[in-house]
Design a protein around this nucleic acid. Structure first.
Lengths: 341, 341
DNA sequence: TTAGCTATTGCAATCGATTGCAGTATCGCC
DNA sequence: GGCGATACTGCAATCGATTGCAATAGCTAA
């Protein structure tokens, strides 16, 4: 029942009474092999549960049929470790890769000891790289761009990056969020987030776009740096925003986690949301709809994002010019910002 | 600067004026090679940024130095896709594996087309399997247990599983949660969760333990099936629990997500938490501390869990008898359940 | 009948590193 | 001076599948 030692192609060939080359071609459905022969070989292989040794194939073909996904953390803040958004994106990427016959090697680069390009590519562990890091300018990525390594990045475009970046249209997202706050009558706004990150910077810029378009004085818009955690959202709100009350009437947080921290601080201080301060986040994590008040937010299209990452990378690996992409986002208005029904 | 084609061990050997075998041994720091020779080879390799071809090594050594991590979803509920707890665990596993020189292949088995064991092991893609699925009895896992495949499972032990399971002491967690509710004066309790899942069943049993010990009548403890989502927590609370008010005074949700859904429903109904109904969850996801009221919960030790998974698997791969482990959990009392200060 | 095709199949090299075993040099010591 | 031990180093086989090219068989057309 359980074959003692591993079956090899040679065993299958012998059983089928053909040469290894024929067996190999038959299994891969090479049409040059007689149909009857093909079927016979495939049947025998199936009977014995033969699985091609991926290692041997990889060595011979010089491909690994594997893509490395690197989650690049900020060494300092350790952010995003528990960002639900990430896991969702990962799931989509995994599915899409598997659809194309690729496996996914996952690496969280906390210790950034090893140089990605060579660790994964030169050693033939992977054929390409997907880098997920809502990072600040990362020298390692910049360095990669100088090489021939096929890779794509999930993140925010700031304009001139010499590598393909797929991400949400963060600026548009920021615009939508701010327009919404303005439409609810907010006039003194705060942006809560770390604009050293490209994506966050774009969200902030979008907010400024909207304010400018609405003729809001620029000193009515404050930006306050904040980590990606609920904790920091809470702290920063406590430390800096209470002082600006009651004038302050609208907060745009760079992520839902931050927003929920801010919400906590406001509620503890008995500030009515959205009546006194309207609040909106970014990401639409699962909890957003279920906190009280429910959190307005800007939703990223994880599905399209994951697919775009994979498809651009595969295109790049086939020698095509990869393109950066910006995905449309969607405004979700919930209780935390809806002053009027 | 950038070497045209990939360097191979042969190239390094030639440059160093030694044979391939010597070069190989030198790079792996085999003490049988003269120290001076070793250093010279290593230096030349470093200069040329030589990286051992993992594929070739794997073929020759018949190992892949790779562990496959499979996130087994419930085909129906698609739960846990966005469970923050999972990502955290994944991160720990990734780090621990990398510490031991292993890479991590991630697979989300939504389409359960392929048979794990053979896909990863027979094809030599991985040396072992870590299966994460707070699953119900999964026939695929049962089948694996019949084979020689080295694998470990994250989940709940129900007693007799013939394979190593690492997980939290869910029963103890349930006990702690219930004891806490009781200590707050709750007498009519509801458990919200799907007890077909081992882990959840254990949490429920723990709750019953505590109630029994406290002499609570068994009909004062209700169990209500519920998916892993905030959404279902919300719905089930609306549909079934309002009818039991005001007698009902304590809810233990099988996960924080469920708890937050329930909280939403209660608040919308103007039920005071914790005065009228005390609420406690499980997991301590990042948001728990930042909803309002903040959510009491039982915290799992992700760190130890990830390490245990990896270490047990590696032990198993070295022929040792792997042991199941139950990790201690910790009760975190926050506003949602604290009636007295 | 035979050259010329086509349809199949097999031979043997190849991918790059590892490793058992054999070979060489050097040294100490009687 | 010779013998064995010690310390390195190299030869060549090996892991398992893929593939360019050669080989064979069967068949058609001249």
């Amino acid at each position: 029942m359980n074959d003692k030692k591993m079956m090899t192609l040679a065993d299958i060939a012998k059983l089928a009474g053909v040469s290894e080359s024929t067996a190999s071609r038959a299994l891969r459905n090479n049409p040059v092999i007689n149909q009857a022969t093909r079927e016979k070989v495939q049947q025998i292989a199936a009977e014995h549960q033969f699985k091609v040794n991926a290692t041997a194939r990889n060595l011979r073909t010089q491909k690994s049929y594997t893509i490395a996904v690197i989650i690049a953390f900020d060494a300092k803040t350790q952010q995003s470790v528990s960002d639900p958004f990430l896991l969702e994106l990962l799931g989509v990427i995994a599915d899409e890769l598997s659809l194309h016959g690729y496996d996914m090697l996952l690496s969280t680069s906390k210790r950034d000891d090893k140089d990605w390009g060579s660790y994964f590519l030169d050693s033939k562990r992977a054929d390409g790289l997907i880098i997920i890091g809502q990072g600040e300018h990362d020298p390692r990525v910049e360095a990669l761009a100088q090489t021939q390594v096929p890779f794509v990045v999930w993140g925010g475009r700031s304009g001139d990056e010499p590598y393909p970046i797929i991400g949400s249209d963060n600026r548009q997202g920021g615009r939508l969020a701010a327009e919404h706050l303005l439409s609810q009558g907010c006039r003194q706004l705060v942006f809560l987030g770390d604009i050293r990150h490209n994506e966050i910077e774009q969200r902030h810029l979008g907010m400024l776009d909207a304010c400018q378009a609405a003729g809001i004085a620029s000193d009515a818009v404050q930006q306050l740096s904040c980590d990606f955690t609920a904790q920091d959202g809470y702290l920063k709100t406590q430390q800096h925003l209470f002082a600006r009350l009651p004038a302050l009437d609208g907060i745009f947080a760079a992520s839902d986690a931050i927003a929920m921290g801010a919400m906590k601080a406001l509620l503890e201080h008995d500030i009515a949301i959205p009546q006194q301060v309207a609040l909106i986040g970014f990401d639409d994590i699962a909890m957003s709809a279920y906190c009280t008040p429910s959190l307005s937010t800007v939703k990223q299209n994880t599905q399209s994002g994951g697919k775009a990452l994979v498809n651009q990378l595969l295109a790049r690996m086939q020698g095509q010019q990869p393109l950066s992409e910006q995905l449309a986002v969607k405004l979700l208005c919930r209780q935390s910002s809806l002053r009027r029904l």
